[in-house]
Design a binder for these strands. Structure first.
Ligand SMILES: [Mn+2]
Ligand SMILES: [Mn+2]
Length: 781
DNA sequence: GCTATGA
DNA sequence: TCATAGCAACGCTGT
DNA sequence: ACAGCG
């Protein structure tokens, strides 16, 4: 049995286990709950203030000390006026689990009546360890709660009747309010958990019905399966803002500050609470990192609901701060949940509502949905309604800029909630380089690490609009942000493809018209979680390794002999964070080797590249289809993709254990057969001037150090095209590679899936293919 | 885009 | 402190 | 030996 603090004796004596709904204090507290300070030397902890409607209504202030909650009953409640000292009667210690207790204690039980969590936060004992001070009849604390903040003091009355009488008062500081402009207990009466007043708690079912009634009156239609659907479905139901300024209807607009946090769909279905994110193409659930938000959603007087919101942590000045949130996630991952959650609370700022009860609220007008949200959520709590801005757009942007907010989302008044891109506009306040960050809540197999990537210069134009482009072509700019978003959104499709495969970055830090360079080696200064591969001497050998971001090998004292090549350390791009990171470096195309660690001497596919250049795409199409026939005849399968420029690539999987010599030989022989069959439109001549207007059949991209542009890679050409996997049925004369761009390809993947699936799993019979190809070649001469 | 360098 | 250079590869061809 | 090519 768990070790129960002796201090809880009086608490347990007053209560009947199994009958009261209060925690009984016999469960082992969170592992780190008692470890936050040395035994008997508590320096900090959590606090809760309950509002308890017992025989006599009172507040209960409970401070974590030595693994239990030191408790005071405060009849008048705290005051921000330092001159107003209120009576605080020390009561029995409560178990640590009581921090989260909010319920109606049944009649007949000790303390029967409603009890809400009026405030919650962290406490620091500012004048030495709590136990030491307590022994002297004093306790000076710094509270960081949602309502109570700053310095407070408890002082024991020397001549109390029972010895339990103390005084509680505010110390003078920036948070004190001597003129009592704020009557904190009256102005902020609601639970920070459920948003209910203590009077409402017992009637929460009634409250829930009235919220639903209101939604129905506003026009919400019944869809009993919606919440369940939102809990499960793959595709994101969230609306995403478009960088297209005109996406939101001009005219009447409402503005939401874009907070630096984690965008989630929050769903509650009874006891089930999910926080779902679609940072990539497949959803993840991250509620394990947000027990405070989960508790609040469970406490809400709405048993089934779905919200669109932002998880936000705040810094000391009250500004949203993503690195702090990141740090908290990391600490929770390390098993320090209690401390991390206590010191860094996270709030769900709710921007919108998709479903309430059995009602679909998405078709409602924006203002109606807002009204429902702000009616349901308290102004101060773990769940909060976002406060939209209205008025002149320039003024709104200026206001936000002055608050340090870089981006604002404009939404058309009266608009319904529509999933996907298109109805909201992302506006820049013109603040310094606008940045956005991405938080991964899981990385690697079991280890949960936080990866926090700050994306700089999202508005930087990487693909300038082409004013001379024909009408059907996009005339807008594409930005660096568009690039990052594209790679982030397709990371899951790209992932298996890039696994264990060296990637060469082709970087355009200033966009497609700026300078560019290839980058094989991982430069210094990369974050430690970027995986790399060290290539031993030649590409014949290589070992899997992870960088420490630290010492760039000071081991090699003497420089290597000039003849010998320095060992290379290349990128392995195996996850979304890395993809976002390298996109932020200005990497537009990704090139990959046709081999994977640890067997870099083996080719797992070869490529036949149809370079159109002076020729025409329809000829490349003819050649690719002929190639398909040849491959079929020798028992191989080709996977076609656009190059992203003007030509086509056909990738032919080889399965395991094939040498680059074999791969290259197959490619060359197939190329020769193609040229023989179509001498008028194909050539393998390396001299450009002799090619004329024929397609160059390039088989030279197969070799240990030869790279090809990866499938789904973006190209640094006008139009922000993507090297796009195709179905053979699409390889026709009317194929238009310009249609595949960083905006269209994610949609295409969502609709058609990964057309290259199967390439990696192929196990073709290569010896037979080689033999059959030899026969074909023999026959043709 | 970022670091190491040489002036 | 500031401006700038470097950031890949390799075999083959033709001159 | 060196530049051009993909
Ligand atoms: Mn009480
Ligand atoms: Mn080529």
């Amino acid at each position: 049995m768990a070790r129960v603090p002796k201090k809880l004796g009086p608490y347990r004596d007053k209560r009947a286990p199994g009958i009261t709904n209060e925690p009984f204090g016999d469960e082992a507290p969170a592992i780190d709950a008692r470890a936050s300070s040395k035994p008997g030397q508590t320096e900090s902890g959590a606090f809760v203030v309950h509002l308890h409607d017992a025989t006599k209504r009172h507040y209960d202030v409970r401070l974590e000390i030595g693994g239990v909650l030191l408790s005071f009953a405060v009849p008048h409640g705290p005051s921000l006026d330092p001159a107003k000292k209120v009576l605080a009667v020390k009561t029995e210690d409560h178990p640590i689990e009581y921090l989260d207790f909010e319920d109606v204690i049944p009649d007949g039980q000790y303390g029967a009546g409603s009890m809400i969590v009026w405030d919650r936060g962290s406490v620091t004992y500012v004048e030495g360890p709590a136990e030491t001070e307590l022994a002297k009849g004093k306790l000076h604390v710094e509270l960081r709660g949602m309502k109570l903040r700053g310095r407070w003091a408890f002082v024991k009355l020397a001549k109390g009747e029972t010895g339990n009488e103390w005084l509680l008062f505010k110390k003078q500081d920036g948070e004190s309010d001597p003129v009592r402009a704020i009557a904190i207990t009256e102005d902020l009466p609601r639970s920070v958990l459920s948003g209910l007043t203590v009077d409402e708690l017992a009637g929460r079912d009634e409250i829930e019905r009235s919220h639903l009634e209101r939604a129905k009156k506003l026009g919400a239609k019944k869809d009993a399966s919606l919440v369940g659907t939102l809990l499960e479905r793959e595709r994101s139901p969230l609306a995403t803002p478009s960088v297209h300024e005109g996406a939101a209807a001009k005219g009447a607009r409402v503005y939401d500050a874009q907070l630096e946090g984690v965008r989630v769909l929050a769903v509650r279905d009874g006891d089930v609470v999910a926080l779902r994110v679609w940072t990539g193409r497949t959803p993840e659930r991250i509620e394990a990192f947000y027990p405070d938000v989960v508790r609040a959603l469970r406490a809400l007087p709405m048993t089934r609901a779905a919200f669109d919101g932002e998880l936000v942590a705040f810094d000391a000045t009250g500004h949203p701060n993503l690195p702090r949130l990141a740090q908290r996630v990391a600490r929770i991952a390390k098993g320090e949940a209690h401390r991390a959650v206590t010191t860094t609370p996270v709030v769900l700022v709710v921007n919108d509502v998709l479903a309430l009860g059995d009602l679909d609220t998405r078709p409602l007008k924006l203002e109606a949905r807002r009204a429902l949200v702000s009616g349901l959520l308290p102004p101060l709590g773990f769940l909060r309604a976002a406060t939209p801005l209205e008025g002149d757009e320039a003024r709104v942007l200026a206001t936000c800029a002055s608050l340090g907010i870089a981006n604002v989302i404009a939404k058309g008044k009266g608009s319904a909630y529509t999933e996907g891109q298109g109805r909201w506009s992302l506006l820049s306040t013109g603040l310094p380089p606008r940045s956005r960050s991405v938080v991964d809540h899981k990385a690697g197999e079991h280890q949960t690490t936080l990866r926090h990537v700050v994306v700089s210069n999202r508005e930087k134009v990487f693909w300038p609009a082409d004013p001379s482009a024909n009408l059907r072509a996009r005339t807008e700019n594409y930005t660096k942000g568009d690039l990052v978003d594209y790679y982030a959104s397709i990371a899951d499709v790209l992932g298996p493809y890039l696994k264990d495969r060296p990637v060469i970055l082709v970087r355009y830090p200033d966009g497609i018209d700026g300078k560019s360079f290839f980058q094989w080696n991982v430069p210094v200064g990369m974050p430690p979680w970027i995986r790399t591969l060290t290539l031993a001497h030649d590409l014949d050998e290589g070992a899997l390794a992870s960088t420490g971001a630290t010492s760039p090998t000071p081991s090699r004292v003497s420089s290597p002999p000039p003849s010998q090549k320095a060992p290379k350390r290349v990128f392995l791009v195996e996850d979304r964070s890395t993809l976002v990171y390298i996109a932020n470096l200005g990497c537009i195309p990704l090139h990959v080797l046709a081999s994977r660690a640890p067997d870099l001497a083996r080719a797992d596919f070869f490529t036949i590249d149809f370079d159109v250049k002076q020729s025409e795409l329809r000829h490349a199409v003819t050649l690719a289809r002929t190639l398909r026939g040849l491959l079929d005849a020798i028992g191989l399968v080709g996977y076609p993709k656009t190059s992203g420029q003007t030509g086509l690539h056909v990738l032919v999987p080889l399965g395991p254990n094939q040498s680059f010599d074999t791969a290259r030989a197959l490619a060359d022989l197939l190329g020769r057969l193609l040229v023989e069959r179509h001498p008028d439109i194909a050539t393998m001549d390396r001299i450009v001037s002799r090619r004329g207007d024929r397609v160059y059949v390039d088989t030279g991209q197969t070799g240990t150090s030869r790279a090809i542009v990866a499938p789904y890679s973006v190209r640094a050409v006008p139009g922000a095209t993507v090297s796009t996997p195709l179905a053979w049925e699409e390889v026709t004369a009317d194929l238009d590679p310009r249609a595949f761009t960083i905006t269209t390809v994610p949609r295409r993947i969502a609709e058609r899936g990964d057309l290259f699936a199967g390439l990696l799993a192929a196990q073709p019979d290569i010896p037979t293919a080689v033999a059959k190809l030899a026969v074909l070649v023999e026959r043709s001469r």
